[in-house]
Computed example of a mutant assay.
Amino acid sequence: MKQIYLVRHCKAAGQAPDAPLTELGVQQAERLAQFFSDKTVDLILSSPFERAVRTIQPLADKMGLDITLDARLAERVLADRDLPDWYELLRKSFDDLDFCCPGGESSRAAMKRAVAVVEDVLCRECRCAVIVSHGNLLSLLLKYFDDRIGFAEWEALTNPDVYLLTFSPGQDGPVPRRIWTE
């Protein structure tokens, strides 16, 4: 059996790759480390974005683990420019996985790169991994394992949030289970 925890980053001061955690986000990262303190984590992978790394740094420090940065965990780019109707376009991208805004990435393409990270983890010797990323990408990864997940579930994500994927021999695939309760 292999467990993979999917973590959405803590509260951040913006969307830019170098956006730091807010003061609340720093406190949330400490609570997140406490949340994982009774788990036997042996691998941590993170988006290279500052807010994702800072979210999991307290846990990595507590457990004496390195954080492996993986560019495939970076947030999905909906478009290459600010769009006034981005919210409706994002909704559309959950209904039509091949829909793509100018300069953006389709949901299917983003999902594919996130799934590749999970597949890589499944090929490793670890038993319990933590993957830290962003709301849009994580909700697409969850949708891959449970097609009922969509825009409404993206909207319901919190900062932070944690889902568990459990892979057991002979099982078709995991059923994502939300385990964050704060």
Rank of each mutant, 00 (worst) to 15 (best):
Y87Q: 14
A116H: 04
K11A: 14
C126P: 00
D98S: 07
H9S: 01
V117D: 10
L78Y: 01
T181Q: 08
C100W: 09
L83A: 11
D85G: 00
C128R: 08
L165A: 13
A19M: 00
F99R: 06
D95C: 12
F145I: 09
G135S: 07
D161E: 11
I4W: 01
C10K: 04
A109T: 09
I67H: 09
C126H: 06
G25R: 03
L141E: 05
V41E: 13
W86H: 15
E153S: 13
L32W: 07
S37G: 02
S168C: 13
S47P: 13
S93M: 15
L164Y: 02
C126D: 05
I56R: 06
L142Y: 06
L45G: 01
L59M: 13
L137A: 11
H9A: 05
D18I: 05
L32G: 10
L97H: 09
G173E: 01
E182K: 00
M111F: 00
L97K: 06
T22Y: 01
L32K: 02
K62Q: 15
L6T: 03
D120T: 12
D146I: 00
R91N: 13
A114V: 13
L140F: 12
W180F: 09
A12C: 01
A156F: 06
I149W: 03
G64M: 02
A74I: 14
S107W: 06
K11E: 15
E182I: 02
Y163G: 03
P17C: 05
A79M: 13
L6W: 07
L45H: 10
L142S: 10
K112V: 04
L32V: 07
P84S: 13
R124L: 14
I56H: 06
E30Q: 15
W180Q: 05
F36Q: 07
D120S: 09
V7H: 08
N136L: 09
R54Y: 04
F36G: 05
A114E: 13
S37R: 11
S107V: 04
D98I: 01
K112Y: 07
H134I: 06
D61Y: 02
V162G: 13
Y144P: 02
T55R: 11
D85S: 04
V132H: 08
L78T: 13
P84R: 04
K2H: 00
K62P: 05
S47V: 03
